[in-house]
Amino acid sequence: MKFKLTLWLFAFLLSSTGMAGDKTLIRIGALAFGTVNWELAALNKENLLANAGFELQIIPMANPQAGKIALQSKAVDLIVSDWIWVSRMRAGGSDYTFYPYSNTSGALVVPADSPIQTLTELQGKKLGIAGGELDKNWLLLQALGQRQNIELDDAVTKVYGAPPLLNQQLLQQRIDAVINYWHFAARLEAKGFRQILDGAEILRQLGIEEQVPSLGYVFRQSWANRHQQAIAEFLQLTAEAKDRLCRSDTTWAKIIPLTKAKDSATQDMLRQRYCEGRVQKWGKANQLAAEKIYQLLRRLSGNKLTGSSEQLQAGTFWQRD
Rank of each mutant, 00 (worst) to 15 (best):
308 S>M: 11
240 E>M: 12
291 E>F: 08
273 R>S: 09
307 G>Y: 06
155 A>L: 12
181 Y>I: 14
116 I>H: 00
106 G>Y: 08
169 Q>L: 01
300 L>C: 11
304 K>H: 15
52 A>D: 07
223 W>T: 11
84 I>D: 01
250 T>L: 05
23 K>T: 11
221 Q>E: 13
167 N>E: 10
303 N>G: 12
190 A>S: 02
97 T>M: 00
85 W>Q: 13
137 N>M: 11
311 Q>L: 10
160 Y>I: 09
45 K>S: 09
210 E>I: 13
257 P>Y: 14
156 V>H: 03
154 D>R: 09
154 D>F: 15
98 F>A: 01
178 V>D: 04
148 Q>N: 07
236 Q>C: 14
248 S>P: 04
72 Q>M: 10
97 T>P: 00
218 V>R: 03
106 G>I: 12
26 I>M: 00
283 G>D: 11
125 K>F: 10
3 F>E: 12
84 I>M: 09
249 D>Q: 12
124 G>M: 14
254 K>N: 02
124 G>A: 08
160 Y>Q: 06
97 T>S: 00
102 S>F: 08
8 W>S: 13
310 E>Q: 14
99 Y>C: 02
230 A>W: 04
162 A>H: 11
201 E>Y: 05
135 D>K: 07
151 E>A: 14
201 E>I: 07
29 G>D: 12
205 Q>L: 06
227 H>F: 11
126 K>M: 09
317 F>R: 05
287 Q>I: 12
280 Q>A: 09
39 E>A: 00
113 D>C: 10
14 L>Y: 04
316 T>G: 00
118 T>K: 15
136 K>M: 14
22 D>C: 10
131 G>W: 09
81 S>E: 14
214 S>L: 15
100 P>F: 00
283 G>Y: 00
4 K>M: 11
155 A>K: 03
58 I>D: 08
206 L>Q: 06
226 R>K: 15
133 E>V: 06
232 A>I: 05
237 L>C: 04
191 K>H: 06
134 L>T: 07
313 Q>I: 08
70 A>W: 09
51 N>C: 06
76 V>R: 07
5 L>W: 15
184 F>T: 08
99 Y>P: 03
89 M>C: 05
245 L>Y: 06
101 Y>H: 02
31 L>K: 01
257 P>F: 04
162 A>V: 12
238 T>Y: 01
140 L>V: 15
158 K>I: 14
163 P>A: 14
304 K>I: 08
26 I>W: 00
131 G>D: 10
264 S>C: 11
144 L>M: 08
45 K>G: 12
81 S>D: 13
24 T>H: 02
209 E>T: 07
274 Y>W: 13
159 V>N: 03
304 K>C: 09
204 R>G: 06
243 D>A: 15
223 W>A: 10
297 L>G: 10
154 D>W: 08
142 Q>V: 12
29 G>L: 08
191 K>S: 07
169 Q>V: 10
13 L>F: 01
22 D>V: 09
203 L>K: 04
88 R>F: 02
279 V>A: 07
173 Q>T: 10
299 R>Y: 11
